[in-house]
Measured scan of single mutants.
Amino acid sequence: PEEVRRLVEELYRKGVSPEQVKKILKKQGIDEREIEKVLRRIG
């Protein structure tokens, strides 16, 4: 979803590592598979 992409990109631009991005967003209840999809697209 758009909102997940925005959150991931925001953290990524701040220099947060992909592993940390995953941890942070998982705590917020976001599906890990969604996060990984976005990270793959960015990375």
Rank of each mutant, 00 (worst) to 15 (best):
S17H: 10
Q20K: 09
P18L: 10
V16M: 12
V8Y: 02
K14I: 08
L39P: 01
V21C: 04
K23V: 13
R13W: 13
V38W: 14
G15N: 05
E32Q: 06
V21Y: 01
E2T: 09
E34D: 10
P18M: 11
V38N: 06
S17W: 05
V4N: 02
E10I: 12
K14M: 13
L39G: 01
R33P: 03
G43D: 15
V38G: 02
E32V: 06
K26T: 13
K22W: 14
G29Q: 03
R5M: 10
V16G: 04
R13F: 12
V8P: 00
G43F: 08
K27E: 12
K22T: 11
E9L: 15
E3W: 11
G29S: 03
G29K: 03
K26M: 15
K23H: 13
L25Y: 01
I42V: 08
R41P: 09
Q20V: 10
V21K: 00
I35T: 03
I24N: 03
R33V: 10
P18S: 11
V21T: 07
R6K: 09
P18D: 08
V38A: 12
L7S: 03
R6F: 07
L7F: 07
Y12T: 08
I30P: 00
E9R: 13
V16T: 08
K22N: 03
I35S: 01
L7K: 08
K37V: 06
R33W: 08
V4F: 06
R33D: 14
E10G: 06
R5N: 08
I35A: 02
L11H: 15
Q20L: 12
L11Y: 06
V38Q: 08
E9P: 00
G43I: 15
V38E: 13
R33C: 05
K27S: 13
E2Y: 09
P18R: 14
K37I: 09
E36W: 04
L25G: 01
V21W: 03
L11S: 01
L11F: 05
K23P: 03
Y12I: 13
S17R: 10
K26N: 05
E3F: 10
G15I: 01
L11P: 00
V16K: 14
I35D: 00
